[in-house]
Design a protein around this nucleic acid. Sequence first.
DNA 1: TTTAAATACTACTAAAAGGTAGAATTAAAC
DNA 2: GTTTAATTCTACCTTTTAGTAGTATTTAAA
Lengths: 137, 137
Amino acid sequence: MQLNNTTQYAIRILSYIANKHDKQLYSAKELAEILSIPYKFLTKIMTELVKADFILSIRGREGGYKLSRPASEISIMDVLNQFNEFVEQKQCLLGIGMCDNNNKCGLHDQWVKPKKMIKDMFENTTLENLDGNGYKI
Amino acid sequence: MQLNNTTQYAIRILSYIANKHDKQLYSAKELAEILSIPYKFLTKIMTELVKADFILSIRGREGGYKLSRPASEISIMDVLNQFNEFVEQKQCLLGIGMCDNNNKCGLHDQWVKPKKMIKDMFENTTLENLDGNGYKI
DNA sequence: TTTAAATACTACTAAAAGGTAGAATTAAAC
DNA sequence: GTTTAATTCTACCTTTTAGTAGTATTTAAA
Ligand code: SF4
Ligand code: SF4
């Protein structure tokens, strides 16, 4: 019941870039240092974020990364989907195939409400909403 | 954001044993077949359930497994804890160390409510509550 | 008392996730 | 034009999780 490492990193990276408006571009080097993410692992994630069109990269000297669209247009759910976290909304909590509400597992009835709440939260929260001073990064 | 395989199996096994009252003991062989869990993997989980005192085992011919206490006294949270799922309630969703409400990550404020809802649900749901006819197993 | 059917133990293999290394490519600065 | 600082690509290594194999132990039935 936790987000996996890669997804956590991805959210933190996007969140940082989205909410630090003092610069145009951020290099992998500085992101790795500031966010304490292994450099080589971060660059791997960055290219995935670029391919997913969350991030726009400028190559070559003086290059770096920036958001490809406004922070308000990227929801946490978008990111989770990209990293296969919430993959199949219909997947059973107990892993017994898929859930179509007619073929319930034992935990179904208790799970639907919290599940919906999480879903809504992730859908309604954008990178913009993660702003705020004093937050750890 | 899903329970890992081993935990899913554990809940399904416990749930099945708890709610099928037609027998005293269930053998690993029949549990594996009925629940479609690899036999060798299941026996491994069973010994962990025995050590965690959820299950009582009777060895030797005609032996098998049964609950070590009433189904109403084993919550899903108990099981999750045993399998290190909910380990540290205080662990940050974004993996930035621990959360003490004074040292928040960007998702904190959105996360607290759903988090509490899930927690309560897992704590208040016991093996007994997983009963019900027509549920897939 | 032997045999059969069950759990328990030890050790290994396979797959997925997390992470690292090094070279190739790009483009601005010099 | 060369150098330098950046991203990208390919390939590998490490750790964790999932799953398998074989044997030892236990105990009731035959
Ligand atoms: S609980 Fe219901 S909804 Fe959730 S997974 Fe199991 S079956 Fe599907
Ligand atoms: S979100 Fe807040 S509570 Fe949840 S983990 Fe991050 S810091 Fe802790």
